[in-house]
Design a binder for these strands. Sequence first.
DNA 1: GCGCACGCTTCACCGCCTGTTAACAGCGCT
DNA 2: AGCGCTGTTAACAGGCGGTGAAGCGTGCGC
Lengths: 110, 110
Amino acid sequence: MEAAPHDETIRAGELELRRSDGLVLAGGRVLAMSVRELRLLMALVDRWGRIVSREELYRLAWGGTLRPGDRSVDVYVHKLRTKLEQALPHATFIHTHLGFGYRFEPLHKL
Amino acid sequence: MEAAPHDETIRAGELELRRSDGLVLAGGRVLAMSVRELRLLMALVDRWGRIVSREELYRLAWGGTLRPGDRSVDVYVHKLRTKLEQALPHATFIHTHLGFGYRFEPLHKL
DNA sequence: GCGCACGCTTCACCGCCTGTTAACAGCGCT
DNA sequence: AGCGCTGTTAACAGGCGGTGAAGCGTGCGC
């Protein structure tokens, strides 16, 4: 189920990430992702199961330092959740740890 | 079974504390912890098996000095116990030493 | 050049969670 | 019994994150 960080193809339940192609598949369908969305998702997946701070996510997906008050990470987490939710309604992937950051882990809902 | 204070990953029976990730696992499941809860738990675990006074716990988890009448530590010990109890009903981790403070040590119930 | 489409950023609003304090109940010791 | 300490719950305020939309910039096709 779980995948080593730098495999070419990573599977998370119904979700499939082809790193080299920059391609995300959900139940066989292609999920259109922008560059930022993809890099953020990859950053989270690379830290599978661990909490990743906004600062680190910003470094990994944007490069540079997250400025105080910058909500970009939040907004893009939301975009990712929306797309994943729409493709795979029965699962949740990105979990919030208030005051810490986000964590990637596929779970069945409720 | 027991762990040295500053290991990255500490195991207490079914309980697993990943210090660097700020993550607590109980039987493989993630236990969501707030900042205070986590710091208090870590403070207790760092003094594994020893009695820690409220004053010291406050210093370690809150910073600063515990003011007379401040019950914050008690309230958060209770929150920790509730979460640990719910995740691992057959074990007890935090023990009260009346007039002295609290002590962390995983024990089977009864 | 112009307008459009897309992606990224920023803003504002709102709801929920957290941390704090207080109040009351219960327990243990003398 | 009386006192002090702890357990437990509730109420409150502030902060953080969720969310939708507007603002900008860039690249592309016409």
